[in-house]
Write a protein that binds this DNA or RNA. Structure first.
Lengths: 194, 194
DNA sequence: GCTTCTTAGCTAATGGTAGTAGCCAAATGG
DNA sequence: CCATTTGGCTACTACCATTAGCTAAGAAGC
């Protein structure tokens, strides 16, 4: 019998695609093996464990998301860039729910590569925010605010959390408009003591 | 041998507590049974399945969270109420990560009780926002924006998503300040066509 | 108090899961 | 062409959720 010609990256990629289809929680070694056309134990020649498969999907997902965000915001500035960033983020999450679920899982305690990957993703956002007149030290808070809002919206939407589907587009524009407005009118006391 | 005196509610409550300790993903019937002092199959006299245990934990969590939010905002208005709401939300999530993870899972397709429970939680938020001068139809968008931002922040923080722990409190104040500011200065075109 | 009925907890077993051990043939490199 | 490496396999273990069927604890009626 001929070999399947697998490699760690192909297994992870197939896992990512399958996770998007059936949901990360329903991704099993058994199912992935059937999809690839191989018996389950064979997968362990390419990935250490199910957990390491999750990690691989997360790393691939973070890379892909970062590329999508970079592409979407290339050559844009200010509010336009933020809108483009937000739209690309939301679209990517909706199109890749399994990958996204993997990226959201907390990385292992001392996983340097994973940490660095997350950091690089943040840099894209920081670059987008660089155009705004933020006060000292506010960039990190603005980044976290934007990231929280986008992550929250996208994951709630992806999980079907917004009862009625209607007007969700408009809600998203409202959210992004809101944040852009605030970024343009930063005040030095924002985030200060209550 | 004497009976353990269990009931569905006590099993769910123990499951919720255990989920907070070990993480929802590590909650197993085996572990829960040991915790309660009973053999695994006995649990099935009180809960239908692991999935229905998740659902029970989610329902209990939503009720508890709603109560905490109602308590925190009682008698408060405007920005103060929003800050109190946000602080209570964040605190509850940090203190009950397992319960919260359960509440976030999408409810089954036609689970009326679960849907109603989520809706009642939203009403607390709508009440808090009732003080603000929002334009027609903006209340639903503002609700979703606030909910997204809080859910996003809390779940990222709960998952250890903000690299350095320092300044996270300040980031949260920044986020809430930001949203309160915007709520107080709503514009009719917000959320309109790009 | 005694009997009857219901049912909570048990043991035993099933099928599915992740993962390991060890074999063998396919590819690789001299 | 031979030696080595290695990818996929079968067979197995341990653990998971879950079911079947038994037994005794407790409640209900008399």
């Amino acid at each position: 019998m001929p070999r399947a010609g697998l490699a760690p990256a192909t297994v992870v990629a197939a896992g990512a695609a399958l996770a998007d289809e059936v949901g990360l929680a329903h991704l099993t070694m058994n199912l992935l093996a059937r999809r690839i056309g191989v018996r389950p134990p064979s997968l362990y020649k390419h990935v250490e464990s199910l957990q390491s498969l999750y990690r691989g999907i997360a790393l691939q997902g973070k890379r892909e998301l970062r590329e999508a965000l970079t592409r979407a915001t290339a050559g844009q500035t200010g509010g336009t860039a933020v809108h483009a960033f937000a739209a690309a983020y939301r679209r990517w999450v909706l199109e890749h729910p399994g990958r996204y679920a993997a990226t959201v899982r907390a990385p292992a305690a001392h996983d340097e590569e994973d940490r660095r990957s997350s950091e690089e993703g943040l840099r894209v956002l920081l670059d987008v925010l660089a155009d705004f007149p933020l006060h000292d030290g506010h960039a990190i808070h603005a980044t976290r605010t934007l990231r929280s809002a986008l992550h929250g919206f996208a994951s709630l939407e992806s999980a079907g959390g917004f009862g009625l589907a209607e007007d969700v587009d408009r809600s998203f524009r409202f959210l992004v408009d809101t944040l852009v407005t605030v970024l343009q009118t930063d005040r030095p006391d924002r985030g200060g003591p209550a």
